[in-house]
């Protein structure tokens, strides 16, 4: 099977205005969340490593608009966007990132391990490629129970080279599991270009080699991602097995916050912001269907929501020392 041309994206006309607004709200919330974290991180109050998703918003939201709470999602170390797109509460997320007790994981996971099982969010994952084998397991649960649900594994271009991802793709094909592999090619695995590290150049072609439908789409184009994911999710729900999508975008920040990004051309990010801003592209596409002032209102509301989340997180208590040895086991 070779990678197929991406389905012709039907564009904004295929979606009702309330759905367009909802998608934009989630993308705007991701953008506001990440831009704010970029600033918050410089204060020294955010413990550990932070990896920002800005620039890739259309991928998470384009995929997750097809999912419900009972569908599962396995994420990456760059997981904030996936969490928000899957419906995680931004206040509890921010508390988690600040290491506070009301965080989604009680402050025990942090940015790289945010999970909310009640939303089908199986966790950001700090092991590159780690989500793919877990996601096929979640897909096996749906298949075994006949629930019609699906699972999505997000993996980066870096993770696309990991053996366990290959194993997961093969197993998914062998067992015809209801799973979608989304490869977010943001140009870099840490400080190394995908054009160097992905030997086949095309991740979509390589996924297709495992025997599943696979397409490459512009990951800054919400409608392209949304159309490809819609087809893949429908296939999975119909019992027709796995699919893969390679979505290309650029991350606007470093591998981690503090990354000097000296491996990138000086104007690369500025050009991406000017020419391939997923939110700006979305706004241009929906002009006439969603009023500009409504979109501006959504932007303002996202900023306010994130501001409130930061205020809450900063005021929230750290975990009690008694939490240290709690919840290693259900029972021991």
């Amino acid at each position: 099977m070779s990678a197929q041309p991406a389905p012709r994206a039907p564009g904004p006309d295929a979606l009702a205005p309330p759905l367009l607004a909802r998608a934009y709200r989630r993308m705007a919330l991701i953008r506001a969340f990440e831009e704010r974290l970029h600033v918050e991180n410089t204060t020294g109050d955010v413990p550990g490593f932070v990896h920002l998703y800005a620039g890739q918003e259309a991928i998470a939201v384009g995929v997750c608009e097809h999912l419900g709470d009972s569908d599962y999602l396995g994420s990456t170390h760059r997981g904030h966007g996936h969490c928000i797109a899957k419906g995680c509460d931004v206040v509890a997320m921010m508390c988690e990132i600040f290491g506070r007790a009301p965080g989604l994981c009680g402050g025990k996971g942090g940015s790289m391990h945010i999970a909310d099982l009640s939303k089908g969010m199986l966790g950001a994952n700090a092991i590159v490629g780690g989500a793919a084998p877990l996601a096929i397991g979640a897909a096996l649960t749906h298949k075994t129970k006949g629930s019609g649900g699906v699972a999505v594994a997000f993996t980066g271009d870096g993770g696309s080279n990991q053996g366990m991802v290959f194993e997961a793709m093969n197993m998914a094909v062998v067992l015809a599991l209801p799973v979608l592999f989304v490869f977010e090619n943001n140009g870099y695995g840490e400080g190394t270009g995908a054009d160097y590290a992905v030997g086949s150049r095309s991740i979509a072609e390589r996924a297709a080699g495992f025997g599943m439908p696979s397409v490459q789409v512009d990951g800054t184009d919400f409608f392209a991602v949304h159309a490809a994911a819609g087809e893949a999710v429908a296939r999975a729900r119909a019992g027709l097995g796995p699919s893969a999508i390679e979505a290309k975008a650029l991350r606007w920040y470093g591998h981690y916050e503090g990354d000097p990004m000296n491996y990138r051309a000086p104007d690369e990010v500025a050009r991406a912001r000017a020419e391939r801003d997923p939110l700006a592209l979305f706004r241009a596409r929906v002009a006439g269907r969603v009023p500009a002032d409504e979109l501006a209102g959504i932007d303002a509301q996202a900023l306010a929501e994130v501001d409130a989340a930061v205020r809450t997180a900063r005021a929230a208590p750290f975990p009690e020392p008694t939490a240290l040895e709690r919840d290693v086991y259900v029972a021991y």
């Binding site: 084998p133 397991g137 649960t141 749906h142 075994t144 062998v174």
Partner: peptide, 21 residues
């Protein structure tokens, strides 16, 4: 029955365990 694919065997089992099997 699976291929010879231990990461996918244990990973799939872990993901399935977390979601209800």
């Amino acid at each position: 029955d699976t291929p010879i694919t231990e990461s996918a065997i244990v990973g799939m089992a872990a993901g399935a365990a977390m979601t209800g099997l």
